[in-house]
């Protein structure tokens, strides 16, 4: 009887042992079954490629596919491309047979994520809309990869450095008036930063005010007239990549509007934002550049 019982137990042990060792719940509340150590990882946004690389270290070969323009670390440039983040090539993703895919709510299209899930691929979606979400995304990415302890540590490091930076800014800027800032992402149509993105929180972090903080979208597109009416103290054109000349042209375009405070004081500049735009550990680097640009330090 006992032996029979134990053989039944044994049977269950071998045959019901889950093929998937663990489950994570992602930022949109979906539970995903993952293997103990995913070896074929695909990242659907440049920032995700960067964050995953932080955890993988030298083990970068576990990333088998990245979105276009993934260039940090440089080795990702040579990895198989699955198309741009806003128009993923689902067939190329499927051909990689990934055992873990990272997607973001800030850029990837919900229907494409749905499509990937319907074809049976394990997609973990992260959210980076504010600092606590960035912290959560770090933990989520780390634990999905299979290094939860390390990810707790990195997330803690992120939130502690963030807090230190916040305090330092507060001390440095205690007696200064809050500058009112416009972050310009695009031109024609003008794209700015609304309150539903971490860039809005970055402006607040450096003791400044986002003139479009009242708009609850991620990236609203106001008219130039509205910008003139709101009259920011500082206009920063966010530049990406090595070639700044295009962004310099955008900054000069404001020059004709002489009634604006920012134009009168000559406080329209190009800010190299490669680090700022990444909701990863590099973000604080970007935030300190943002602070310097807003307060005009050399």
């Amino acid at each position: 009887m006992v032996s029979r019982f134990s053989s039944v137990l044994l049977f269950f042990y071998f045959f019901s042992a889950p093929a998937f060792a663990r489950e994570v719940t992602d930022a949109v509340g979906v539970r995903i079954e993952l293997s103990e150590k995913p070896l074929r990882i695909v990242t659907l946004a440049p920032s995700l490629g960067e964050l995953v690389s932080v955890f993988l270290g030298a083990d970068l070969a576990r990333i088998v596919g990245v979105s276009e323009y993934s260039d940090v670390p440089l080795a990702l440039k040579k990895v198989f491309s699955i198309g741009p983040y806003n128009r993923l090539n689902i067939e190329r993703i499927a051909s990689l047979k990934p055992d873990l895919i990272f997607a973001t709510t800030d850029g990837n299209l919900p229907d494409q994520i749905q499509h990937l899930r319907e074809t049976g691929m394990p997609v973990v979606v992260v959210n980076t809309d504010d600092f606590s979400e960035i912290g959560n995304s770090i933990k989520l990415v780390g634990s999905a990869i299979g290094s939860p302890a390390e990810s707790e540590q990195v997330a803690k490091q992120f939130s502690e450095s963030l807090e230190r930076f916040r305090q330092a800014v507060r001390r440095r800027r205690a007696n200064q008036a809050k500058p009112r800032v416009l972050l310009q992402l695009g031109d024609d149509p003008l794209v700015v930063v609304g309150s539903k993105t971490f860039l809005h929180h970055a402006i607040q972090l450096v003791n400044a005010e986002n003139i479009y903080g009242d708009i609850k979208d991620r990236y609203p597109r106001p008219s130039k007239e509205d910008v003139v009416k709101r009259d920011p103290d500082v206009i920063l054109v966010l530049a990406l990549g090595a070639d700044r000349s295009y962004f310099e042209t955008l900054a000069r375009k404001w020059g004709g509007l002489r009634n604006m405070r920012a134009v009168q004081k000559g406080r329209i500049k190009v800010l190299q934002a490669d680090a700022l735009l990444r909701p990863t550990l590099r973000f604080l680097e970007g935030a300190s550049l943002l602070e310097k640009a807003i307060y005009e330090e050399k």
Binding site: N89, I90, E91, A94, S95, T119
Partner: peptide, 15 residues
């Protein structure tokens, strides 16, 4: 399609 060596699951599920 977008990849050269597609297996049956890509052909059936996507193409």
């Amino acid at each position: 399609g977008s990849v050269f060596d597609a297996d049956s699951s890509i052909i059936y599920q996507l193409r």
